[in-house]
Amino acid sequence: MAHKFIISKDKSGEYRVYFKYNAETIFWTEGYKSKASAQNAIDSIRNNGPQAEIVDES
């Protein structure tokens, strides 16, 4: 699968979630103190993303 979520720990010890398509990072989250919080962010994106409004500000 070309799309994937990656949880990694940054230099400050916080967990971040990266969403990648192939090798390209599409977006990343704020830092979280716990891995469980990072997983909750993934779950929220999966649950709420399909219904998200699209705003064209061009």
Rank of each mutant, 00 (worst) to 15 (best):
K33V: 11
D10Q: 05
R46E: 15
Q39M: 11
S12F: 05
S34H: 11
A23R: 15
I7H: 01
A23W: 11
K4Q: 12
S37K: 14
A52I: 00
S34L: 12
E24M: 11
Y21A: 07
G13S: 06
T29D: 02
F19S: 03
N48V: 05
Y18L: 12
Q39S: 08
Y21K: 12
H3C: 03
A23L: 12
R46W: 06
K20P: 00
S12V: 08
S8R: 10
I54M: 01
D56A: 09
A36S: 14
W28I: 04
H3S: 09
I26A: 02
T29M: 03
K11N: 11
A2L: 08
K20R: 14
N48Q: 13
T29C: 03
R16T: 08
E14K: 15
S44A: 14
K33F: 08
I26E: 05
I7T: 05
F5I: 07
R46S: 10
D10S: 11
E24H: 11
A2V: 09
I45H: 08
E57N: 13
S44N: 14
V17R: 01
S37Y: 10
A2R: 10
E53L: 12
M1Q: 09
A38V: 07
V17D: 00
K20D: 02
T25L: 07
I7D: 00
F5G: 00
W28P: 00
S44E: 12
A38E: 03
I6Y: 05
G13D: 08
F27C: 06
S37I: 05
K9R: 13
D43L: 09
V17T: 07
I26S: 01
I7Q: 00
F5H: 05
A52M: 01
E14Q: 14
F27Q: 00
T25F: 05
N40K: 15
S34Y: 09
D10A: 10
S37T: 11
N22S: 12
S8K: 13
K35W: 06
D10G: 08
F27W: 12
S58V: 07
H3A: 05
I6C: 05
S58W: 11
K4W: 07
E14Y: 14
K4L: 09
I45P: 00
E14I: 04
T29E: 03
